[in-house]
Design a protein around this nucleic acid. Structure first.
Lengths: 344, 344
DNA sequence: TTTTAATCTGCAATCGATTGCAGGAATTTA
DNA sequence: TAAATTCCTGCAATCGATTGCAGATTAAAA
């Protein structure tokens, strides 16, 4: 516990009476070291319990083999799954992850990003916070020559690599499904419109209504119904209308949908016959509520893997000529469950 | 995107025609630099978009202000909450987190730990994997002068800082509660007994039975019922007994308890009147199943904060004389819900 | 046997920031 | 005015690993 001194390549070199450079080469399996010497060095290194000092190595090499990740909250299902995916893919390539949470605060997000720049990470992966307005700090990442990949919640105007869900398409399918089940007045619980993902979900909702020649009614659109509580609150308002909706698309999250379900249950409104409910994200619990909740799966772990692999792929192609900002769109999947199954 | 070259303190020094050491001192707000010069340096640094190279700094200072975390899976509720807690406390102290997942594999766990040692993290926080048998790699952490903190799943024989739940006490309370609700034949779904936490939960179960003068019946104890599927399987076996249990304590997890509930529901067995169910962990979904599931809250986020703060506290006390291996035990809380409420 | 080529090995610089030490300038005290 | 302090500033070494280059050794070719 006390031996602060770690063995370095110099210790090994001294012990074997050779140069540190040879030790370094041997430990990096360079072929300009004699096989026998190499073996001896490796053996000695093990005996002395040598551990390479990655800091020194990285400093010299000018890269850190580290990816920085910034998400609003680590312990939100979607994000923790994405992170798990990133970790899995990164680990295989020998990369490490530094994780930060922005707590949905731009101010903290900026600090996180700066820390990661200081740490000389090779790449920063971010899903921007809800209150983010400008993106200087992200531009700064690029200016420092660090690869930037945005996922899910992206700042559209920034030309970076992006991995997103096709939110509009998914919403369109969800609402179309509701319409096909015979629901006539479909309400929308929408999220903060400064985030593109929520604008897209709203667009999908509107497109679906238009496609089927149905009117878009402002009174059926509830702003900022993000959490379970806000979802519940919005639902109460909606159901108090003279002409209440017969279906609610909680485009913000499954938590919001859960709020809807609880209010409906409390008011004795039958789901799905009197009210259809559709959530977003396919949280684990949507399967076990009664009735189970129709929702949209975002393939979050896969999304994480995609993000990481996109980086490695981009690394591989050294032709700096081709700096096309790539966007990978993952098609989410509508999971139809009891909460919207009116026919058959 | 191309300016690979970052500004260093030398660039600032050259521009102002002073020595790099002064720049360094100024940026570290040392009071041995003239106020005016300091201001000028800081201003120039900002103009040149200078970012300190943490790698170089850490290499020189011999510390990294980084905490490494190893958990079985990042995207398991309990662990992601603990990580969130660690992050919150660490961020305040200016520490970063490097996160790894062991996938419950000792082999990967060893690799993760080695990577973290190479990274020169200041502290490693770990919850050991289920199949872990020996702990040489953890001893190695200590031998390298790195602080080691174990949480939740700990290797008892290693004298390190530990943050644990009082699993035995929690189980005892849970089972006592079942008994007081009038359940007579209480079964146990147990986890891998090489993990201390599961041994403790079993001990709590047995103690409770003894306390009330009830027999411990082997046929009512099901091994390795960790997941929802295994929980369901175990439940089917139990309910097939000549004398089936009238309550099941899924000591492994809430997922297991969910498996129990699903089987019971499918077989038309009424919960809680005919069968009581108690889970472990207070997963979000336990509140919304019907009936809701009685479970045990582990205060996971708080646990994470405790871990981090324990480290900082230990840092603070420089008296190396006192190297007492501290153990902090957090008392979990029994959350009584519908699945066990038979009386009142 | 001499020339050429292939293989190893070591020196020394480098990555960027930090810090002990020495010395010069400015200020205070005698 | 001389001596003693205080205050700044810069030099140079250091953290540990990597790598271009040159020289040495050995093997192969002429």
């Amino acid at each position: 516990m006390k031996n602060k001194k770690r063995t370095t390549i110099y210790d090994i070199a001294k012990k074997l009476n050779i140069a540190a450079s040879s030790v370094s080469r041997a430990l990096n399996n360079s072929d300009q070291v004699n096989e026998a010497t190499k073996k001896l060095i490796i053996k000695t290194a093990a005996e002395l319990n040598y551990k390479r000092n990655t800091l020194a190595s990285n400093l010299r090499k000018g890269q850190s083999k580290t990816i920085g990740v910034v998400v609003p909250f680590i312990n939100q299902n979607f994000f923790s799954n994405v992170i798990a995916g990133i970790e899995e893919a990164s680990y295989q390539k020998g990369y490490n992850l530094i994780i930060c949470q922005s707590n949905e605060l731009q101010s903290k997000e900026i600090k996180c990003v700066n820390t990661l720049i200081n740490q000389h990470v090779d790449c920063i992966v971010i899903s921007i916070s809800a209150d983010s307005s400008d993106h200087k700090h992200l531009q700064n990442v690029l200016d420092n020559g660090i690869q930037l990949i945005q996922f899910d919640r992206v700042a559209d105007e920034l030309e970076t690599l992006k991995v997103i869900n096709d939110n509009e398409q998914a919403s369109l399918e969800a609402v179309s499904h509701l319409i096909e089940q015979g629901y006539k007045r479909i309400a929308l619980l929408e999220g903060p419109q400064n985030l593109q993902i929520f604008r897209q979900r709203k667009a999908g909702y509107i497109n679906a209504l238009k496609k089927y020649g149905m009117p878009v009614l402002d009174e059926l659109i509830v702003e900022n119904a993000w959490t379970k509580e806000l979802g519940a609150e919005g639902t109460r308002k909606l159901l108090d209308l003279v002409e209440p909706p017969d279906a609610i698309f909680a485009s913000t999250s499954d938590f919001s949908a859960l709020g809807v379900l609880e209010v409906a249950t409390a008011m004795g409104i039958k789901v799905p016959s009197e009210l259809g409910i559709c959530g977003y994200s396919n949280e684990a619990f949507t399967e076990i509520t009664s009735p189970s909740i129709t929702t949209i799966d975002q393939f979050s772990v896969y999304m994480g893997k995609t993000v990481a692999n996109l980086y490695f792929q981009e690394m591989g192609n050294k032709d700096d000529t081709e700096t096309v900002p790539k966007i990978i769109s993952i098609k989410p999947k509508l999971i139809v469950r009891s909460s919207t199954k009116r026919n058959g």
